[in-house]
């Protein structure tokens, strides 16, 4: 089994763009049989069946994200947005093409990565913090702020399984916003919690925009694209079909259905 591999390079150059993507391709091999395993693999080999079907997800993307840009990535479900984000984050390997990341990149593919229902809120905070790159000492310092922001101070020693899903997301978000990096990758993390908490989230995004933080945001909310982004990209069927002002891209997105 041979995979062709593109490159993902990390550099640190204050004068260069934050992210450069050149001719990025990615496809997945989807198994055609339901059962995984050695038996199936041997059978397939004997019968000369491939046992998988190639699904092209990204078909040659080219774009540059400048420092300080708040870039929105929009597109329908299955258009390849999340795959792109995962390649930028270094979770998936580019199949063809080059990705260059300039500086430290903090990905939030999902909130509360590593959260374990059997552990207490306190233990989960330290675990999630470690996954974001914080040491215990650093977590100690921001520990109280995390709980205060999440408005969950009374639940610190409860197991996470006793939290409502809204509470879990609030806690996760509260940890996530402490992360510092040159580039933030956010996948659908807005629109969590109740109205009051939503307010806090919006403030956080406003502050990112005001501080000229480089952000890449994958979202379905055109309201958020118009409100926070300085630029947007519309991806359809693995290709960039529109790149430019948030307003224009949002309109193009809405036209996909008309």
């Amino acid at each position: 089994m041979s995979h062709k591999i593109g490159t993902r390079t990390e550099i640190s150059d204050p004068t260069a763009p934050a992210i450069t993507v050149q001719n990025l391709h990615k496809s997945f091999r989807l198994p055609t049989e339901q059962t995984f395993g050695l038996k199936q693999a041997i059978f397939n080999r004997l019968r000369g069946i491939k046992g998988y079907r190639e699904q092209k997800v990204l078909k040659g993307l080219d774009f540059v994200v400048n420092q300080g840009e708040f870039l929105g990535i929009v597109g329908r479900n299955g258009s390849g947005k999340s795959t792109l984000l995962k390649i930028l984050a270094g979770i998936y390997y580019p199949e063809k093409g080059n990705v260059t990341i300039n500086g430290t990149l903090v990905p939030f593919i999902e909130l509360g990565v590593g959260f374990n229902p059997e552990l207490t809120g306190r233990e989960n905070v330290y675990l999630n913090g470690a996954l974001l790159g914080f040491s215990n000492a650093e977590m100690d310092k921001m520990y109280d702020d995390i709980w205060k922001f999440a408005e969950l101070e009374d639940f610190q020693d409860q197991k996470l399984k006793n939290y409502s899903s809204g509470m879990q997301v609030r806690l996760a978000f509260s940890i996530a916003i402490r992360a510092r990096g040159n580039i933030l990758l956010l996948d659908e993390v807005l629109a969590v919690g109740d109205a009051a908490f939503q307010q806090k989230c919006n403030q956080y995004f406003e502050s990112l925009k005001d501080n000229h933080q480089t952000v890449i945001l994958v979202t379905h909310s055109m309201e958020n694209v118009r409100r926070f982004c300085t630029r947007a990209i519309l991806i359809d069927d693995g290709k960039i079909v529109k790149d430019g002002k948030p307003d224009k891209v949002a309109n193009a997105y809405l036209k996909l259905w008309s």
Partner: peptide, 22 residues
């Protein structure tokens, strides 16, 4: 590096805690 050390420590701690949880 620093980040990997933090990760290794925290994941080991979690594994150990979870093993005898409950």
């Amino acid at each position: 590096n620093r980040r990997n050390r933090i990760l290794l420590k925290e994941l080991t701690k979690t594994d150990f805690k979870l093993r005898y949880q409950g």
